[in-house]
Amino acid sequence: MTLEVTDLVGGYSQIPVLKQVSFTVAKGQLVGLIGLNGAGKSTTINHIIGLLRPQKGSIKINGVSLSKDSKRYKQSIAYVPESPILYEELTLKEHIDLTIMAYNLDEKQAWQRAQKLLTTFRLDKKLDWFPANFSKGMKQKVMIVCAFLTDADLFIIDEPFLGLDPLAIRDLLALIAERKAQGAAILMSTHVLDTAQNYCDKFVLLNEGQVTASGSLAELQAKYGNSQATLADLYLQMIERN
């Protein structure tokens, strides 16, 4: 097991947003974190990446918590945020160099991987560009390149399809499938439910800070008694019941 979230209670104040949230993401598994705005998806992710500390419960990656070994925990994660976060004073090349240093990667091997990713996302001619020169979609691609440059055990991808063109979405999904096959665990938050249904192995459905249901599409269909329902159908049915 790579990611284990157990009875997580937390939020941004003493009043918890998350209430006893529990789920796992295993090696070689893509899990979709599904919920309406305000359901607790971003709060959950912020706890996992260490921006927020749990009020109760635990979060472990390969059995290690942030409090037990923060360096090992953080180097196990690669994160692609919904809104790109880049350093305005650094070029694309310098962002890649920084990632290599932060994750203590072998420079030669990392740059070989980077060149392949840069070519895939059509950024290979833009190594000397600064963030000010990039569109939002291009900034998102920079974040993807930097994340998948690493050897992380857990990839956390927050609303990855916003701002990406259809070709980049195809390439990202292929990249996710490749890392899954190599044994990485991937947690993806998205509102694009038809794409999630086609690519995710399991789903965690959040509503008002609680896990209302989790499992594969077939397991969710069985839970809600509708073997023909889409993921969108099931989520709307869950909301109406609650």
Rank of each mutant, 00 (worst) to 15 (best):
T44K: 11
F161P: 07
T6G: 08
T230C: 11
E240G: 13
T195K: 13
P54F: 14
M143R: 03
V21Y: 08
R113D: 02
R53M: 13
K68I: 08
I186P: 09
G28F: 02
L187D: 01
I96M: 05
T150G: 01
A102G: 05
I144W: 00
R170W: 14
I45G: 13
F161M: 07
L205P: 02
A26W: 05
Q210H: 04
A229E: 09
Q115I: 09
A213D: 04
A185Y: 04
Q228M: 08
H191E: 03
K71S: 13
E89Y: 09
E82K: 04
A218H: 09
Q197K: 05
K19Q: 15
I176A: 11
T44M: 10
D128P: 12
V211K: 06
G35R: 09
D97I: 04
G35D: 10
F161I: 02
K56V: 12
Y79N: 01
H47R: 13
N104S: 14
A196V: 12
V21Q: 03
L118R: 01
G209M: 10
Y73C: 10
T212I: 13
K27T: 12
I15S: 14
L98H: 05
R53F: 15
M101Y: 07
G57Y: 13
R122F: 05
G50A: 15
G163Q: 02
K68Y: 08
A174I: 08
N46V: 03
A196S: 03
A174G: 09
N62W: 11
A184S: 08
A78R: 00
K60W: 06
D201I: 05
S216W: 11
R170D: 14
